[in-house]
Amino acid sequence: MNVFRLSGDVSHLLAILILLMKIWKTRSCAGISGKSQILFALVYTTRYLDLFTSFISPYNTAMKVFFIASSYATIYLIYLKFKATYDRNHDTFRMEFLVLPVLVLAFVVNHDFTPLEILWTFSIYLESVAILPQLFMVSKTGQAETITSHYLFALGMYRALYIVNWVYRYYFEGFYDLIAIIAGVVQTVLYCDFFYLYVTKVLKGKQLTLPA
């Protein structure tokens, strides 16, 4: 475990905690895309099936269980507990436009044609685009609450830090995974526009608003 990988994991953990706290403290999930959260739950469920087949470390197991549990908890908060505050009219991205192409791609481009490996590949591809309904929602409403911006920043930084971790591991351990790298780069690139707005607006104390 190198410092980039650990920072990436911490950033990911922080993103989830920020989101859960925002919803819990404000008793509202306004501005949050339930569809992105459904896609993330699908990502963790399909990726961490190896919990049943291989043990890596207590850290690894604990993080996997937390990611799965927190993703379903978030869905529960959005669609059940605080559903009156869910902004469904602005959450109109079609999930099947992401899930179906990604499923086909996972069957075609993978390391090994076995059920677990195809599901892992599916989850890597799906994760790279799972934030699109959320970004679409922000662009549709033209703004995001500051706390939502912090959530998106931490979530975007997580994969960016993983990329640095992969460069490090390639140089010092000789390991690399093209599927993870390409998907990770796609994922990070999708956040670039948001990163720019975050640095130029949110960090200067302004709310994130998009030009009309």
Binding site: R5, D9, H12, D50, S54, I56, S57, N60, M63, K64, F67, H111, D112, Y162, W166, R169, E173, G174, F175, Y176, D177, I179, A180
Partner: peptide, 10 residues
């Protein structure tokens, strides 16, 4: 196995 030792990642 194509995933060169990165199975420990999240």
């Amino acid at each position: 196995d194509g995933r060169n030792g990165l199975k420990d990642e999240l």
